[in-house]
Design a protein around this nucleic acid. Structure first.
Lengths: 146, 146
DNA sequence: CCGAATCAGTTGCGATTTGAAACCATTATG
DNA sequence: CATAATGGTTTCAAATCGCAACTGATTCGG
């Protein structure tokens, strides 16, 4: 179907072409938190039903979700694919940024914890030699133009 | 100004309310890569000019960008704030996901490298005890309802 | 100093997307 | 069997987007 990428050689731009809208990543968030059915996604996100239909279809076409028959019965359900589950670090870093910069001190928010209930520590970019990386210590190497 | 959050207690949702659209994170990406001026952002992203105006204003109002007078002369320029620079891990994980899942094998893409030209290694979520974390080994703890 | 180019937007307008609500066919449930 | 819940689709108005033209400064070349 020859997708029409915004910026074909930038992985960030391609990722955003697939999930860079207001709702897609919230759907993925809820899928990670156990949502499986149309109604459950709708209830959790509050998204309009026609838009939800569209997003579920798109995410399925892009290979982030798959539809399979539920184990119990005849209903169908949406489950994350490996590619969808691979968005975990993206959701996690968004969460961490949100906690730090989108809440006033004192405001409470939900927290991501491991199976023992211990809050998940922050994710810090580090280089091969263990040094911390940021905007000032990295740069984008453009692909060679054929 | 009493923002009207999609899902007030979820940091992921708040983050997406601020940068969860097709263009904002591309603007941040280019700011991280050295873009400062309106025209430069427009040239790199290909975004429509009126939309760019809106995004720059929004990002500035949200405290991710700041406008300051350029060191050389009288023009004004946009620079990332600390909050904006803190999106680095988000952009990085998006880039990594894109590299893995939005390119066919053999397709070439730009790469993030450190100052020695060495590609930045992948970012892996780990718990306090060093174990790898993913969707199955974490869960969201909702905030206590008043 | 003058004209041309560049910069940083703004305006107008048609096309697309979104959101709210109503509707509908198909399972479940009491 | 009646009723409710599920998983959508349809309709329609409102908001957003994208393109292109226009404006008003600033800067550059000669």
């Amino acid at each position: 179907m020859a997708r029409d990428w915004t910026d074909p050689e930038c992985p960030v731009a391609r990722a955003l072409d697939l999930v860079g809208d207001r709702w897609s990543l919230l759907v993925v968030r809820d899928a990670m938190d156990g949502a499986r059915s149309f109604t459950e996604f709708q209830r959790r996100t509050g998204i309009a039903r026609n838009i939800l239909t569209d997003r579920l279809r798109r995410l399925t076409e892009s290979g982030l979700l798959a539809q399979r028959t539920a184990p119990s019965g005849r209903r169908r359900e949406y489950v994350l694919t490996d590619a969808g589950r691979d968005l975990f670090p993206v959701i996690l870093t968004l969460r961490q940024w949100g906690e730090r910069h989108a809440f006033d001190p004192g405001e409470s928010h939900s927290t991501l914890v491991d199976l023992h209930g211990v809050p998940v520590p922050g994710l810090t970019p580090t280089g091969a030699d263990g040094t911390r990386l940021d905007t000032d210590t990295t740069r984008v190497r453009k692909v060679a133009t054929g």
